[in-house]
Structures are given as structure tokens and as C-alpha cells.
Nucleic acid binder design. Sequence first.
DNA 1: TCCGCATCGGGAACCGGTTTCCACCCATGT
DNA 2: ACATGGGTGGAAACCGGTTCCCGATGCGGA
Lengths: 354, 354
Amino acid sequence: MTRKSEDTSRSTIRDVATRAGVSASTVSRVLGGEYPVSTATRTRVMRAVRDLDYVADARAKAIAGVGTPTLAFVLEDITGPSFALMAHGVEREATRLGHLCLVCSTEGDVEHELEFVEMMRAQRAAAVILVGGAADTVEYRERTRRMADSLASAGSRLVLCGRPPLGPGAPVTVIEYDNEGGAFALVSHVLAQGHRRVLFLGGKADHTTAQGRERGYLAAHRARGLEPDPALVLNGDFTRDSGHRLMRRALKEGLEFTAVVAATDMVAAGALTALHEADLTVPGDISLAGYDDIPFARDLHPALTTVHVPYEELGRLAVRTVLGRTAETPDEHLLLGTHVVVRNSVAKTPETGS
Amino acid sequence: MTRKSEDTSRSTIRDVATRAGVSASTVSRVLGGEYPVSTATRTRVMRAVRDLDYVADARAKAIAGVGTPTLAFVLEDITGPSFALMAHGVEREATRLGHLCLVCSTEGDVEHELEFVEMMRAQRAAAVILVGGAADTVEYRERTRRMADSLASAGSRLVLCGRPPLGPGAPVTVIEYDNEGGAFALVSHVLAQGHRRVLFLGGKADHTTAQGRERGYLAAHRARGLEPDPALVLNGDFTRDSGHRLMRRALKEGLEFTAVVAATDMVAAGALTALHEADLTVPGDISLAGYDDIPFARDLHPALTTVHVPYEELGRLAVRTVLGRTAETPDEHLLLGTHVVVRNSVAKTPETGS
DNA sequence: TCCGCATCGGGAACCGGTTTCCACCCATGT
DNA sequence: ACATGGGTGGAAACCGGTTCCCGATGCGGA
């Protein structure tokens, strides 16, 4: 027991001052660093600090204007690989820039999202980063816009990361990726292999990310003068189970297609399992492609052809951009590129010649 | 422009008071709720609050003793599926109990872990949850023990979630799962299928989680009167790439084995890919099993036999337990069960009969 | 009509720090 | 010997809230 047994309650700067026989100001000064303090005093204070195991209350410092700044991010579910990647990027860059990170999962509940943003405004967070897509309705835009305004008027700032912009004039920073372009390139690749009936396993109809990918799917067809069969686009919810269910149903209903493009790699994984269960080989019988390039895409069998999205970079850029702002900075809007990564799950159709 | 253009700086309670023509105390009271305030005054104050879009500074409230409590958790890398699951459990339960969540990834850097815990002590976090295994050295134990002490003396508390206890007397709450037991059951299952030479793809030698799983592997052999060949246990680092690399090397070196038990599902995924690359079928030629039961285990082909660890529950319990403490509560130590989930990646050996 | 009590709201102290302002001491220059 | 000034450290104001303490109303009852 070299250390004195402290009483359970944390000690204040005044306790330290008393123990060192100086005033609170002096303690603050030796801890602060800049102000000249005699060596003898400094030593006494440091000793008291060590004896008491004292750490200044960060909240008190914050209110006095010298605290560690905080940055908040909210996402739907940290469990999703692409969310996790963005979160990782955000977290790394934030701590690199000396910020603390507050998280919150909404579980898809917009009400909860709203509450959280309000709390973050109260916490005086330097910025609030909304990660991942959302349902695109007018209420959503209005609500988000109000968040942006109130955050801005509180000296904070809203960042939309992987979520579409709100329209002109909203005080927001948005970091997007080329969602539609990636889908366009991917589906073009599939079509170039000779496929003509490609099933699209999409997400919720009003979800912005799902919409963008679907637009790319359609555009790729039209760019080749093809008119996609509406019966071939199915709506799900971006989960593995949704992919599994949708694929099973498509198979059972006898839908005709030679390739499947899933809106996410998770959906593709579920679809792949359903395909295997039906004794279909990939890409022998059916070609399959995903979207996101989550780390696991390489470990599916066959390795999944998909489009790479720089999720981690997205997160990093979100915080770097927003923390690098000054009051005069115009609203930023970054658009990162995507690219398809060709692996083994898409094959040429027989007609095209092997 | 229905709203007055506020100046950029956030407004204080005194601004609201002035605008409403009352004192700060009154504003605090109408916002606080309990104290009786006349309807007229309340209305005036609320109007001012709305006009100014005022939110009380959470940090100031905190220092006055009425803030939203905060809980911190630190993990190695949110990108790992099992980490993400625990994080999710922690986050959900914490917000359910009205706490804010601070996160930090250490990227495996103990120095960083230390710094972060210190910051959390300064933030007066209600608890700090260390998530996931760690290198088990004496320095580690001493360091962690010091963290526990200093957190405890500051009225906070350290929680070890999925990390082994520190020995008696340390003021810690630990929530573990039966790591060794799971490995024992899994390897027993594999041995029961007739396999006698089972390769173990482990983690870092001093990592507690890796050690536990390896102990289970050895114990299962010995329980059957078998002495495992030391050449069959390989050390890696729990990543997909490590599994891939190790498997390739084992194959190239002509190691003899009929089954592979990977220390994690990620490692198994990498190993599976290597097996496929070598034109070996699973489980036809080689049986394969993983550990963790991450969601993706079902989507590998064949679906992976593995041991289920209740990661999310682990996280939830960690916060529920630590927040449910009183000063008199003895140190808790929970041990959650694991169970093997049999899927399609492990088959009987030929000798055993199909 | 007067007293007492409940209702309401202001002033001030406090939470735990930082920082400005000022007084003091001692060493130096002339 | 005395004015000057740099080095130190204390007192007090401040950051933005909450809450205790008390005084001022207004109302009802005696």
C-alpha cells in the first residue's frame, strides 16, 4: 500500500491546492504549462497531484473553453460491414485530430436520430456526422434541414456521409460516393458478358442508396438500348436474409434470368446461399454480383464480383473536411469514385462464347 | 425567413432570461420541470427558448451534477465482426439506460489504450469497458490493474468484456464467455467424426483469447487419450489474411491433416479460400471449423461449423451489470456459455464410415 | 380588516475549472 | 539608497448552468 487510500469521491483542484499549500490558480498554472512557476512550487504541486491521483474534470475545462473537442456520429447499425468501415474511418481520423468520439445507433428509427442530434447540440459537439443512406421523403429533407440549421446556429455542423445532399443553401457538408455510377459500371460489365435478363435484388423503395443503385441498373440497360423488364427488380432491405428470401422466391416463381445483381454484398451472400441450396452453380448456371466490396466478398465461393466503395476513406474525409472548415468556407460537397472489382462470380453467357 | 437570424455564437440561459424578461433561475426552472411556475411566465420563457433555439449546455449541466451520464468503450478495431457485435450490444444497452457512448479504437496499441482510459477518467465516465482479448503479460496485468484502481478511486469503474480477470482484489467487473469450453466442444465434435490429425490455426501466442482456444483444442485431444502433434498448431493473428497465409503454407509444406480448426471464423474464411485455391473440397477432402459464429459463417460454402459466442449479449450484460452496481456490490464475474453450431463444413472421415 | 399561507420569482452561492488583474518580493542599475 | 522591473502567486471574475434561501405578492379565512 504505497498509495494513501483516497476517499471514494474524486478530488478537486482545490484539494490539490490545499495539500500543496498553494492556491487553486497555481495548481491550474503548473498543470496548464505555460505560466512561469518556480521549481519548488511545481514540485510540491506535482507531488500533491500524484498523491491524490488527480485529473482535472474535462467537463469543467470544456465549459471554461479549454476542453477536448468532441465529434459525434450516428449510424443505423454498427454491425453492418460498410457502416463499420465508415465508423472506423471516422473514429481514426477524429482521434488523430484530437477529438473524442460519441456514437449512436438509430436502428433505423428517425425519431431516435433526431433526439440524438439534439443531445449532440447540447454537448456542443464540433460536428455531427450522419453515416449511411436514409429514406428520401420530403419530411426527411425538412427534418434534416432543420437539424442542419440548428446545429449551424449553435456553431456546430452537420455532415452527411454517404447520404445525398439536401438541396441548395443548407449548411451541410456532404461526402458522397458515386453510387449510381458504380451500379452503372457493374451492370454494364454484366451485360457485356452477354446477359440479357439480369435480376436486381434491391433495397427499400424510398431508400436513397437503393434508389441510386437501381438507377444505375436501369441506366446501364438503356445505354445499351435495352429496356429492363420491371418484373426483374425486386425490393428487399439490404440484409443477408432479404437476399436469401428474395432469391428463393424468384427461383420458386420460375422467374427467368441468367444473372443476379444484388444491391449489397450482404444481399449477394444471402442470394448465393439460396442458389447453392437450389443446386445451381455460380457462375456456371447463374452469374452473381454484389455491391460494397466488404472484406468478406473475397471469401465467398466463388469470390464475388462487386463494386468497391471507399467507405473508410469516406469516413476519414468526412471528419477531415468538417474539422478543417473555417466560418468562411463554402459548403463542401465531395463525390468519391467507385470502381468495379472483377472476381469470379460473373461469367459469359453460352451464346457469347466461353 | 420566419426565424430571426441568430448571431453565430450559441445563446446562454441568460440570453433567454433577458429576452423573456425574467431571471436565469426562472428559465432554469421552467426547463427543469419540477418547480411551480405561472403559466404566463412559462409561456414567455418557452417562446424565448424557441426564438433563440436554445439548448442548455450539457457540459455545464454535468458539472452541476445533472448531466447525461457517459459510458466509454474501447476496442481494437470496430471492423472485426465480433467486436462490432459487442459494440452494438454495449451501445444499445447504454442508450437504453440513458447513457451517452464514447468509443475509441486502439488499433492494438496499449499506449493508446492507456491514454484513452485516462481521458475517460477526466470525462468522469460512469464506466470504461475494455472489449476483446489482449496480450497477457505481467506488464499488462499491472497496467490494467492500475487503470482499475485509478478509475475506481475516481468513482468510475473498469469492465473487462471478453477479457480475462486480473486476479483477486482488483476493482473490476468482468464479463467473460467460456472460451476454452467452446473450443473443447468443437474439437471434440471434430474428433468424434473420426479425425485424428487436426490442424489448429491459432492466434498470437500471448493473446488470451488465442490461448484459451488452444487450451480447449489440446484438452479435447487429451480427453480422448490423444496426444496432439505440436507441428499441427500454427500461430497467426486472427485475421482473414493470416488464415489464408497459414493454410497455404501448411499445404505447401505437405503437412498431413484431415481437418482444420481455425481460431476464428475470419481465419476459417481465409483458410477456406486457400483450400479452394488448392482445388481441395470442403468437407470432402478436408473438414473445416471456425469460432465466433459471426453472421457470415452461414454464407460461406459450405456453411461453417463453428462455436457460437453470445457477443452482443456480452456487451449488453457488461453495461447492465456495471450500471446496476452500488458501492456495496461485490466484484462481479460473469461467465457466459458457448455452444457449437453444426453446419456443413465438417464431415466424417472415410474410416468412420460415411 | 387583518393575518397567514401558498405561490412565484429574484439574488447569490455553488459546481470545477481558467484567466485576468494586481500585489508582493527581491535583485538589479544608477 | 532608492526607483525600476521581472518573477511569483493570490484574489476574484468568469464559463453556463442549478439550487438554496428568502422576499414579495395575492388569496382565503377568521
